[in-house]
Design a protein around this nucleic acid. Structure first.
Length: 548
RNA sequence: GGCCUUGUGGUCAAGCGGCUAAGACGGAGCCCUCUCAAGGCUCAAUCUCGGGUUCGAUUCCCGACAGGGUCACCA
């Protein structure tokens, strides 16, 4: 069979370059030794999730700690999955979390020499190489219809055989020249399949950068490399693109592990040097006692928007991910509390081999610790940003008074105190803690644990002596005075020694005052709260808190 | 079901033939304390199960069991 003629008939494009020209077009990158070139290659569905961030972070860290390149390629070979604005959304989402690309689709960079970065725009490269494969007898046209393929699959399933297009099931693999041209004459649509030279009896051991040594079975599937619309499938595009874009390390989800044999054969058939691979494990969650992969449909926490809406500090999400990416990250951070997480020496072989369960408690812990490193002004800026995007109208009005909010923040965050408080987990809950500092959102629940006369005596007693210019000690001395007057122990030790002699302790008195002033039994330093809301408001609340 | 893969406390995990099996989150308790938060201290909790190999296995081998992934003209 004249393969050259067949190739030209199947792929008649005239503008295809000789193969060597593509090599010249995309020369080796000039990077220092050890530099890794990594990439994120999403399909443009517009949905970028925690798993993407997780692997993007690994890509970005590895590229940037080795002096390499991290680029963005868009795998838009499937038109059905395309969503407008998706690429911008990917870039913006990752940027919000501090993950930036050096080159790629929609990235303004002088480095963009390996494009186009949209696969649809690279059709001629794929076609040139597919044509070459046909000429070399390593690929062939397949005219099977969807129905035929389904029928074969059913038969295979019924016979408990491996499904797919291989061996004796590969009907079009050995079509005669006449049959091929007849089908072509008849205008039958066709795909180009790889003519696999592999044998599943052969096992290869393969070194994965994350999983370590794994054994893979040789591929024998005649996979589709060019779809009937002339656009490549993922497998083929992956081999071509990662070769010409000179990716040195392919980090991708472990769901790709099973198609690794295909990629191995493709790289070999194409004569390309194989990149290193690192297959990451997926983030899991426990659902009804069962461990399963985080799912787009069932789990809102997979979406990155979820973290923005909830008001997680972006760097906290990143650090949380770092803790599961490299388990020694936490230890390093404890030793270098001031350092930027980017100074951490990220290493791919520290990455876990089995899927980590997503742990919201851990995230919350990381988040509040991270927020506790900000100044009151920085905290204000962050909360304000959240309020403007997701807050209520009342929140926005409150945040217009920057001075006042910062005063509150100094208290809530314990700034200036001996120890930093870690009350704020995320913006949403942080903003929610501000309610009682404003009259319109003050929503008291008067849940006193003492009878009316006692409560009223405490409230009135304190109102009579309150002076906003008192310092903390003087203020507390007055609380103790009220306690003594109302039959409470003014010293905790006295109360502990003889509880039966008192109605309660100063702590209980403070609680009564606190409930009246803040509406809640718990709050940061009450004296300071009173100082912030001011004398007028304090007295009004003490009076409003009286039990009728 | 075939193939691949994983298996240390509730969770994330150190460990790489000999250890009282780190640490962190979460839980319990104590201390501090006007409450809460934070902090300090303490406690409970783990090597999936069988066989081997070995003087000795969490660690090596085999098997079972249990998770996970995947079997498209989707990526």
């Amino acid at each position: 069979m004249d393969l050259k003629k067949l190739a030209s008939k199947l792929i008649p494009d005239e503008n295809l370059l000789p193969l060597e020209e593509y090599e010249k077009l995309y020369p080796e990158r000039e990077l220092k030794k050890g530099a890794e070139v990594t990439r994120l290659a999403p399909s443009p569905t517009g949905f970028i999730h925690l798993g993407n961030l997780y692997s993007a972070l690994a890509d970005e860290r590895i590229a940037h700690t080795t002096g390499g390149i991290f680029y963005l390629r868009i795998e838009d070979t499937d038109l059905k999955r395309k969503v407008d604005g998706a690429v911008d959304s990917v870039i913006r989402s990752l940027d919000y979390f501090g993950v930036c690309f050096d080159e790629g689709a929609e990235i303004a960079s002088p480095l963009n020499k390996y494009g186009p970065y949209y696969q649809r725009q690279r059709a001629d490269i794929y076609r040139a190489f597919a044509k070459n494969l046909i000429e070399r007898g390593l690929a062939y046209p397949c005219f099977c219809t969807e129905d035929e393929l389904n029928a074969v699959r059913e038969e295979q399933t019924a016979n408990k055989e491996i499904t797919g297009y291989y061996g004796r099931y590969a009907k079009c693999r050995n079509l005669s020249e006449e049959e091929i041209y007849a089908n072509l004459e008849a205008g039958k649509p066709f795909v180009i399949r790889l003519k696999s030279q592999g044998n599943t009896a052969n096992k290869i051991t393969f070194r994965d950068a994350i999983k370590g040594e794994i054994t893979v079975t040789e591929n024998d599937q005649d996979v589709v490399i060019l779809k009937s619309d002339g656009i490549p499938t993922y497998h083929f595009a992956h081999a071509i693109d990662d070769h010409f874009m000179h990716t040195t390390l392919v980090i991708r989800g472990e769901e790709w592990l099973s198609s690794l044999p295909i990629h191995l054969e493709l790289f070999s058939a194409l004569g390309f040097k194989l990149p290193k691979y690192g297959h990451t494990c997926s983030l899991m969650k426990v659902d009804g006692g069962v461990k399963r992969k985080l799912s787009k449909r069932k789990d809102p926490e997979l979406s990155l928007d979820y973290y923005r809406k909830a008001g997680y500090y972006p760097r906290a999400v990143v650090k949380y991910l770092m803790t599961i990416l490299n388990s020694n990250f936490e230890e390093w951070e404890r030793k270098n509390p001031q350092a930027d997480y980017r100074d951490f020496k990220f290493s791919i072989d520290k990455m876990g081999k089995s899927g980590a369960l997503f742990d919201i408690d851990k995230l919350n812990d990381v988040s509040k610790a991270e927020l506790a490193t900000l100044s009151a002004e920085q905290t204000y800026d962050f909360l304000n940003g959240w309020v403007n995007e997701f807050g209520s109208e009342a929140d926005r009005q409150h945040f217009a008074d920057r001075e006042y909010i910062i005063k509150i923040l100094n208290l809530i965050c314990g700034i200036g105190g001996k120890k930093r408080r870690k009350d704020i987990v995320r913006a949403e809950t942080g903003v929610g803690m501000l309610g009682y500092f404003f009259d319109d959102t003050f929503a008291p629940e008067y849940s006193y644990r003492f009878d009316a006369p006692t409560v009223n005596a405490v409230l009135n007693g304190f109102a009579a002596v309150y002076d906003e210019s008192d310092d903390n000690q003087t203020w507390f001395a007055k609380v103790k005075g009220v306690a003594a007057d109302c039959g409470f122990a003014s010293e905790m030790s006295d109360y502990k020694a003889n509880p039966q002699n008192y109605k309660g302790s100063v702590a209980d008195v403070a609680e009564i005052l606190r409930i009246a002033v803040t509406g809640m039994p718990n709050s940061p330093d009450l004296c300071t709260v009173m100082g912030i809301i001011g004398r007028g408001r304090t007295l009004a609340r003490l009076s409003a808190g009286l039990v009728k």
